[in-house]
Amino acid sequence: MSIDRFGKDKEKFDKLQQIIDEKKNMQGALMPIMQAAQEIFGYLPIEVQQFIADGLKITLSEVYGVATFYAQFVLEAQGQHVIGVCLGTACYVKGSQAILDKLSDILKVPVGKTTPDGKFTLNATRCLGACGLAPVMMIGDEVYGRLQPEEVEGILSKY
């Protein structure tokens, strides 16, 4: 899936241009613009980073530096469903590593990667803050709590 600035993705770039125009005079505009860009494209391919750099008249390395620093910014396209297994302390002491291992086993992808069919991306996340439900995982916006490794397969089959 390549990015086509003047073809299929033109609308998205137009939208991003609008946001850049709105925010470019604000102090510290880079991160809010990148967050908006990720919202539009789902990730930040290099073409989009270059576009932002041009729009703000800064170097690509500055944009890339910020993109790679923060965990929230992703440089690769994500799967249709993003799975996040919480590895916060509360979940970890209640066995979330076993949940993550099980998922990695079933999906046959290492943590942080997307299945070849593009259906699932498996992530280990920081504390989701639902410690009362530990161990927790999220698929998209759906939260699954008080998980047992045996339940994982059944949950995946719903997607």
Binding site: G28, M31, P32, Y70, A71
Partner: peptide, 8 residues
Amino acid sequence: IRLGAGAF
């Protein structure tokens, strides 16, 4: 408001 981006 400024949003963080996941860096401890």
